[in-house]
Design a protein around this nucleic acid. Structure first.
Lengths: 341, 341
DNA sequence: TATTTAGATGTAATCGTTTACATTCTTATT
DNA sequence: AATAAGAATGTAAACGATTACATCTAAATA
């Protein structure tokens, strides 16, 4: 029981008859150390099953060498964010970093707690998909030159590296498609108001309409929460109108699921009664009936890019910040139907 | 630039004209400390925006008080595991713990790396959905009485707390349902052979058939990989039979998606041509057309239970280990159809 | 009044590394 | 032969908290 005894460098040093400094040098294969000594030390370390204490190490080395990076995502249950997390994790693994993953749940209070915790843990840097609440803290961290990357969302006036999707373009392409198919009454179900992604996608919608000379119809525009319930509520509101829109653009993946649940319940045919284009292509998109036409966001690449950017910044803390936009792609399947008269 | 200066207790102490020990006492509101002094210290701490260094703290306190727990899941992109992670995270948050989330990707080598990293990080304990590869390490940790919980999967002969799903029961209920609806030719698309979950679910299938006196028909039993392509291949094989099964039980979430893609392509009606029950209820299940009847695994509860169990074990390191089985639930929607003649 | 007691605070060791600097010892250079 | 240079290793001071123990004061008790 409780043989929880961990060996330290001290133990290895004693056993190998060298100083603790030499052990450290061997294990980090720095500077010069006699080949034979090194071999002996390594042998002892292996025999004792010595594991370095990364906590102690982190106390001593520069923050940027702490080998832990923090990740704060907005909604762990949303596969889009899992994809990002996966991308971050892959890069971190390749560089022997551990990742502390936190879930802000779109709650500024939770986000704040995690920001403070991660800083307390002296992470090398962090990647965050910010909620709308903690502008001051982010601003302060940015002022302190703390290594931080914003992913998916882009708080304004913040001097930070960002990696985001070209949301406006994606939305534009989606709506344009519907327009080209002949639709003129096109509804949009927006996500949480205040998020940069929501604004940008809405802008793409407006741009496509304007370009075609279709006037904005306030009735066709709804804002909801970004989850399944939001999708359900959104389409319910549209259904209440005297005239149904002939097509709807739903601006994220979970909302699209809610939308489909409701249209199924209400016996609405897709695309017969309402044509549908969603945002965010997911593993289940092709399994839907009809298969979903959707804007595909490169979530995994988003995560990879963010992580690489963070590592780069750790190496060069004073480089100018850079905004990276990844382009989405419209995946056309059946849910948007074909040309209408 | 680079005002990355962090204040330490030292700074607070100096500024508040007390010793560092007093600051520590105030901040952890332990033992006795004069009310006025405490107020002064807190004021200074706030003014300097002092943040405790959890790394330094972790060096000093018992492992079990480190306020970081490790989580190793098998596939970050599978929503089932995200749900588990979410459950763990929620409990951790309530207890002011941070979570280091790692993704083994079903690769024993990666799993090993993360096990070592987490131990190096001196996490208080860890929760793991083990792959099949690292039996010795797990065994050793278990011998050392390292606080560890196995989730979703249950390595044999390991004296550990475990939290798993009753897979056999879930499969039994699913198939029983189909039988009760009148089906006699029921196909099963199994996942990768050798996995414990695969075996258990297959057992449930066999049990239900046997109980009803339906003989096993080898033609109706296929084994594929556990991903989307497996589901596609599985139904393709069944379609090639002279007589189609009237119902199919697909044994995991991704395979079900593949199954649906293929039946859509082949213009097969669900449940008209083939009734369907899947394993693992997912956020998209209700959005499918028809909505999916599926065995719901309580992923979130799995995570919550595991985390609570871990916290309990940290408080009482020597309590006997316990196996917890959470029961699945059959969620009935349209894909399994109604009674047939 | 002398002595005990409790409350408030300070002192210093400790956790396990990294690393600047000091110390050897050997070998090359003049 | 004296000195310098360089390689190999050791010494000890950090990093920033926690905490056992010591100290000091003032009130309580005998």
């Amino acid at each position: 029981m409780d043989t929880d005894k961990k060996y330290s460098m001290q133990d290895v040093a004693k056993e190998a008859n060298v100083s603790i400094a030499t052990v450290s040098r061997v294990l980090n294969n720095q500077t010069t150390v006699n080949e034979e000594t090194a071999k002996r030390v390594l042998q002892v370390a292996r025999r004792l099953d010595y594991r370095p204490n990364r906590v102690a190490r982190r106390m001593r080395v520069k923050n940027t060498d702490s080998l832990v990076i923090g990740l704060i995502i907005a909604d762990m249950e949303n596969p889009f964010f899992s994809e990002i997390a996966r991308g971050v994790e892959d890069v971190a693994y390749q560089n022997k970093n551990a990742v502390m993953v936190c879930n802000s749940d779109e709650q500024p209070e939770k986000e704040r707690f995690y920001l403070e915790t991660l800083i307390s843990e002296r992470v090398a840097g962090l990647i965050i998909a910010p909620t709308t609440g903690n502008y001051e803290i982010l601003h302060k961290l940015s002022d302190e030159n703390f290594p931080m990357i914003c992913v998916d969302r882009h708080p304004e006036n913040l001097n930070l590296d960002t990696v985001t999707i070209n949301n406006e373009l994606g939305a534009y392409q989606a709506v344009k498609r519907l327009i080209n198919l002949g639709h003129r009454r096109i509804g949009i179900i927006n996500g949480l108001q205040g998020l940069s992604t929501t604004n940008e996608r809405f802008n793409g919608y407006k741009k496509a309409l304007k370009e075609t000379g279709i006037p904005l119809d306030e009735d066709l525009i709804v804002f909801e929460n970004s989850r399944q319930s939001g999708g359900r509520e959104g389409i319910k509101k549209l259904i209440k109108l005297k005239t149904l829109p002939t097509a709807v653009f739903v601006t994220n993946n979970l909302m699209t699921l809610g939308f489909l649940e409701e249209t199924y319940t209400q016996n609405l045919n897709i695309p017969g009664d309402i044509a549908l284009v969603g945002f965010d292509d997911m593993p289940w998109s092709a399994a839907l009936n009809p298969p979903l036409t959707a804007v595909k966001q490169p979530g995994y690449e988003l995560g990879v890019t963010a992580a690489e950017l963070l590592l780069k910044r750790l190496k060069e803390p004073n480089r100018n910040s850079v905004d990276t936009f990844l382009n989405p792609e419209l995946i056309i399947r059946k849910s948007c139907g074909s040309e209408i008269s």
